[in-house]
Design a protein around this nucleic acid. Structure first.
Lengths: 227, 227
DNA sequence: ACAAAAGTGTTAGGCCTACACCCATGA
DNA sequence: TCATGGGTGTAGGCCTAACACTTTTGT
């Protein structure tokens, strides 16, 4: 038992895990709760922060347990502290979002209870997780205007139409193909993954790769990505 | 005494209070710590979150105690959770920044120990508050591109050169007078505070007021401010 | 042969930037 | 009268948005 002179809230981390594929669009990974409260409801993976780890370490631990991924883009985006957000006791949660490649996700330990939901088909969630999702989506949208985070959701090699669909799914807008490709290529952070076989202007899309080193170098020279 | 089965961290809120005037530029309000650890060091006002209040309520309480202000723009911008950030025990802090009008600030209860520091002359701070300040500044800079938060730092009625200096202080850039005024006026969120007395194109600057209602209405109609 | 997907270039309008002169005030 | 501060408009370049046709593949 641990005793304190003043009451301390419990602290959890929750992780909004975003994935993407062309068929389902932008999706989040939810787990079905096996215990009360909200038993049987879907919620974000999360759990209590250990006393000897910082919040990001805790969130990465949750991510690993659910997806098997050791490395992924992860970012803290807010702390939710409403007094009665958990019916059991005072719990505050530090919320992260993670961007993962769905193809690389292995079902984790609790795989049976985890499922991807397209962003438009998310059921009612446990606790205040509906609100957390809305905030996460907003932050992701803001983020993608200024950082090349979209590539975290795509396979290493991807096509321009794929990239465009991703941006359209996240931002919920439509772009003109030509303008999108032009703007994206002009940023100078994409490289062609391979020469096209032979047939020139064909129906087979060009495959690109995100050049992270190039981006880092440009960024260090004061380049500000803006989309 | 309060006992728990697992250890719980202590949770504090800290408040980076920004103020502005033309003479000193962008400043932050710091308090000198009267107790260990870091006794005698400067730090942001803050304190333990009560168990029956949410984080924003706690931060507003701190703000009120330090500045006497009941209402101000305040926003959570991050949670700092490094394991050893406080030498006494495990403490995480939920950090807010507040934008206040320096002229309206009354010294609070602890006024003797509180002082404004221009952003360029901030001394070494207690705990990880240096880092918190850097993050706060970054978030404020991001924010001001998309929300009309600058007006929270100015008197209700202000001149275009004042507004420009404020933007220059926050963003650490210089703008062309004509371009700045043109862009700002074209947003349609400023109204002239009064007709100019008589002398037309004179040396006395026009006084403006931020039209918050107008902005709200435009925003609700899908207008996105961008600066 | 037809439908679907991908590649490509041009034009017009708006926005941003750079820049110079005039007037009024206060020293 | 001189220096300072504030107001005002225009021209060029860049970016954005809108738009159509050709090629290839698969059915």
């Amino acid at each position: 038992m641990y005793t304190y002179k003043y009451p301390h809230p419990a602290v959890t981390t929750d992780c909004v895990i975003f994935g993407y594929d062309v068929k389902e669009g932008l999706s989040v990974l939810l787990v079905e709760r096996g215990i009360e409260p909200y038993r049987g409801c879907w919620a974000f993976p999360g759990g209590f922060m250990n006393i000897d780890e910082d919040a990001e370490t805790g969130a990465r631990r949750e991510l690993r347990e659910e997806t098997g991924l050791e490395t992924a883009f992860i970012e803290q985006f807010g702390c939710f502290t409403e007094v009665n957000r958990d019916p059991r006791e005072r719990v505050i949660t530090i919320a992260f979002y993670a961007l993962v490649r769905k193809a690389e996700v292995q079902g984790g330990d609790d795989a049976a209870a985890a499922r991807w939901f397209p962003i438009g088909e998310v059921p009612a969630l446990a606790f205040d997780h509906d609100r957390i999702l809305r905030v996460a989506l907003g932050k992701l949208r803001e983020k993608i205007h200024f950082e090349p985070v979209g590539f975290e959701l795509l396979p290493e090699v991807f096509t321009m139409p794929q990239l465009q669909s991703l941006y359209e799914a996240i931002l919920e807008v439509r772009f003109d193909r030509r303008n999108f490709a032009g703007k994206m290529l002009k940023l100078g952070i994409l490289e062609q993954a391979e020469e096209r076989p032979a047939g020139t202007g064909s129906r087979i899309p060009v495959r690109y790769r995100f050049n992270a080193d190039q981006y880092k170098e440009m960024k260090s020279k004061g380049f500000k990505l803006e989309f």
